[in-house]
Amino acid sequence: MIEKRLVLTSPIRLINILWIMLIILTLFSAYMAERGTTEFYSIAIMAVVLAIKGRIIVDHFMELKNAHIVLRTLMRVYFYIIPMMIIIVYLFAEQIAKWTSL
């Protein structure tokens, strides 16, 4: 919905808004870092913030939103996998350590 509204604006305005969004998300991350919380919800929020930032840069800054499907998918998947890894490592750290011990 938000994206649809943004599309209606001029390209320059859209890029300006997205840049401000990226700045706000980064400041939010810094606030979370200072709080130093280790609860699941804060880790999940950080993962989602990373996914959103990655998607904005891939789709709009790199202009891959309407690009070749293979390239677009490869770049987008990167920012699904890394945030998911953050959550998986938080939830199953001990099991992963056990599986990867020599």
């Binding site: 810094a30 990655g54 953050i86």
Partner: peptide, 16 residues
């Protein structure tokens, strides 16, 4: 290069 940094930042500075 920017994408790499926005991934490095939460991993090394934010998430514990």
């Amino acid at each position: 290069i920017d994408l790499a940094w926005i991934t490095i930042f939460p991993l090394l500075y934010v998430i514990r």
